[in-house]
Simulated assay, not measured.
Amino acid sequence: MTRLVCLTRPIDPELRSKIPPAMASMASVIAPLVDYHRPEAKGRERMMGLFCCEAHDLPHGEGWGEEILSDMSSHCGTHVDAPYHSGNLIEGKPARKIHEIDLQELFCPGMVLDMRPYERRNDAYTIEELQAAIDAVGRPIQAGDAVLLRTGQERFESLSAEWFAYPGMSREGTLFLARAGAKVLGTDAPGWDRPFPVMRKRFEETGEGSTIWDGHFAIQEKEAFIVQQMHNLAALPASGFMVGFFPMKLVGTSAAPARAVAFLDN
């Protein structure tokens, strides 16, 4: 019997009120604004208008429940980045958008790299640390794998200062995993690269453009799908499972919110 494990972070509109002022620009990737049309209120009014009826014509005097979402990024919550998120050209060819990715490509063997021993907060993991975590799994990365980084961010409350001070990936680390065969690169951190303030400070100090978003830009050299804001990686073994990422089929977009699910054979 196969057991399903949800690896998706809940999209909770209440989190909008908890975003630190310094990270206000991140609001649309945390949760949408939601206008709730309750059955006893706006939902009823909407149905009365559509059907030209009165409240007493509806069962229990109620209409339907409906929600209107706004200010929501295609990168909201747990989401899959299409290659196009990293630029127009990937491996010298036109980058694929989310609707151009076959669902079968996003259903693959998974392995969890336990990066917690390395405590790279506000910094990028080294290739040596990534290799040590792979060695601990007991098998190498194989072509088509989903490699999921358990960073330890599960310890912190969502949107806390500690949660935003996450460990990330560099160009070198990203290419190391992708060239080893990883097709999906996942993390339970808010982002794949180092935090934006960290990258900005590094650029201000060095003037080197190569330090800007270098983990994502590495996909231009080797195509892979990045999945961010994963959840519940502690429930998985190091390997021996399948994992599926099921993004909304948004036409022409660089990403889409997704339901990420692991399939474990008991």
Rank of each mutant, 00 (worst) to 15 (best):
A182T: 00
L106W: 02
P39Q: 08
L50F: 08
L130I: 11
A124F: 07
R3H: 12
T211M: 03
A255H: 09
R150V: 02
A161N: 05
R116M: 11
G61F: 04
L177R: 14
T151G: 08
V112A: 03
L113P: 10
C108N: 14
F245T: 03
A95S: 12
D57I: 01
D12Q: 04
E157P: 04
V34K: 12
P197H: 01
G168T: 10
P59N: 14
S210G: 12
K201T: 05
T2C: 09
C52T: 11
Q142Y: 14
P197E: 00
E223I: 03
A55H: 12
T126M: 07
I30H: 05
E223W: 00
R150W: 12
P21L: 06
M242K: 15
I19C: 07
G173N: 06
E162W: 00
F241V: 02
E154W: 05
P21W: 06
I90T: 07
V227G: 07
K93S: 10
T8Y: 06
Q104S: 11
P94V: 01
E208Q: 15
L113Y: 03
P83H: 06
D114T: 09
V137I: 11
L103K: 11
F196D: 12
P83V: 06
T126K: 08
R171N: 04
E54T: 15
E14R: 13
E45H: 05
E91K: 00
F263V: 12
D188G: 07
G65A: 09
D145Q: 01
Q153K: 14
A235S: 14
H231N: 09
G61A: 03
L175N: 02
L89Y: 05
V112H: 01
T211W: 06
Q228N: 13
A22P: 00
E205Q: 13
L250Y: 09
E105D: 08
M115N: 10
L233C: 04
D265C: 13
T2P: 13
L113C: 13
S28I: 13
F241I: 01
G87Y: 07
T174G: 11
G244A: 06
D71H: 14
D193P: 03
F51Y: 10
D71M: 06
L175Y: 02
F217S: 07
E66M: 07
R139Q: 15
A260E: 00
Y36L: 12
R44L: 14
G191D: 14
E208V: 08
V29K: 09
Q153P: 02
N232T: 00
K18N: 10
D114A: 08
Q229P: 00
R116Y: 02
G168A: 13
F156V: 03
A132H: 12
P83A: 07
S170C: 08
H75E: 15
